[in-house]
């Protein structure tokens, strides 16, 4: 099932949203049936008007999932499938764009997606995953066009069809899940503190009293800090999380708050800073794709199924293990029931 929003599904979800437990499950089943009926009616959400990539045909089987409206576990994704769907076929045969996988990545995120200036090549954990996906879908790990997509352009880039997918340390959130479809989670992270060696800060707790913290404007870190700052001065915000490390090195702030994955990237660039305390949120990274490219989502989930067993550990050890310890393995895949 996709998370297509139809007016019918919305009203059905609203009707049953207050039901819990077995009642809720029964209600959900009824909701699904209702939703299928609604999908059969000629009332559909508008697809992209332009010739964008990644448009999978919304068949009857791809009925709306009522749980999308409640959004308790946005990291639940569609069941995997190794078939070449419509979107995959389109990528291989399209005329208006290269017959390569077009992937939005970061070029500035150390360990995740960055350009090695000495080789000019892209490297990182995200890049490894992109290669694995390309290998499976296109048959060649190099059949990829990388596009640098700024953080706040990730969703628009997918919606406009500028890219087939985004693999860019992108957190799966309910908000984003309204606009794009996510694969299953490929990495678990959470907000954490990055402090210089010898700092008295012990974590996201009372030791922050009176300390100056740096976070990226518009980030989850800032949102969390606004909810609970533990008496810290959180007025320092910067355009990019890496700017926080500059501030930290210049002595303008006492600690940086960002998610542990990106913090690891910072720690790897400065041996005198390290992650401190527990992560105080739970977040998952996923591959983002067009909402209607359900076949591509299933295909990527299939790639991830295999990647978790073979590839993930190697990449983790290569890039992250030094700075991001205590991780046993990839987060388990969670699927929606369909």
């Amino acid at each position: 099932m996709t998370r297509n929003r139809t007016p019918g599904a919305a009203s059905a979800a609203g009707l049953f949203s207050r039901l819990r437990g077995w009642g809720g499950v029964a209600a959900m089943a009824v909701g699904c049936v209702l939703a299928v009926l609604f999908v059969l009616l000629p009332v559909r959400s508008g697809g992209p008007a332009d010739g964008s990539v990644g448009r999978g045909g919304p068949g009857i089987a791809d009925a709306t999932h009522t749980k999308a409206e409640k959004c308790e576990e946005p990291e639940r994704s569609l069941r995997p499938s190794a078939d070449d769907g419509e979107t995959v076929k389109d990528i291989k045969t399209r005329k208006d764009k290269p017959n390569k996988l077009i992937v939005g990545v970061d070029l500035n995120s150390f360990l995740w997606g960055f350009r090695n200036p000495s080789t000019g090549k892209l490297e990182g954990f995200d890049i490894d995953l992109v290669r694995a996906i390309a290998q499976d879908i296109m048959g060649d790990p190099d059949d990829v066009i990388f596009r640098a997509v700024p953080t706040n352009q990730r969703v628009p880039a997918i919606q406009s069809g500028q890219v087939d997918m985004i693999v860019r340390a992108m957190t799966i959130t309910c908000d984003r899940a309204k606009d794009v479809a996510f694969s299953t989670a490929y990495f678990r992270t959470g907000q954490q503190l990055l402090v210089p060696d010898g700092s008295k800060i012990t974590g996201y707790d009372g030791s922050l009293q009176g300390k100056k913290l740096c976070s990226a404007s518009g980030s989850t870190a800032l949102t969390e800090l606004k909810k609970e700052s533990h008496g810290a001065d959180i007025s320092t915000t910067v355009p990019n999380q890496l700017d926080c490390l500059v501030r930290l090195q210049l002595g303008e702030v006492d600690a940086v708050v960002t998610d542990s994955a990106l913090a690891a990237g910072q720690a790897a660039q400065d041996p005198t800073v390290s992650l401190k305390g527990e992560t105080f949120t739970e977040e998952y990274y996923g591959v983002a794709m067009h909402k209607e490219a359900t076949d591509l989502v299933r295909r990527v989930n299939q790639v991830l199924e295999d990647y978790r067993k073979n590839g993930w550990q190697t990449s983790y050890k290569k890039w992250l293990a030094d700075d991001l310890k205590d991780i046993d393995g990839p987060p388990p895949a969670k699927y929606v029931t369909d």
């Binding site: 970061d106 070029l107 500035n108 350009r115 640098a148 997509v149 700024p150 953080t151 706040n152 352009q153 628009p156 404007s217 518009g218 355009p239 990019n240 890496l242």
Partner: peptide, 18 residues
């Protein structure tokens, strides 16, 4: 250098490369 990591926060050009 910035490679898209800095964008205009608000105004008519919001989201574009600063």
């Amino acid at each position: 250098v910035a490679r898209g990591s800095v964008t205009v926060p608000d105004g008519p050009n919001a989201g574009k490369d600063a």
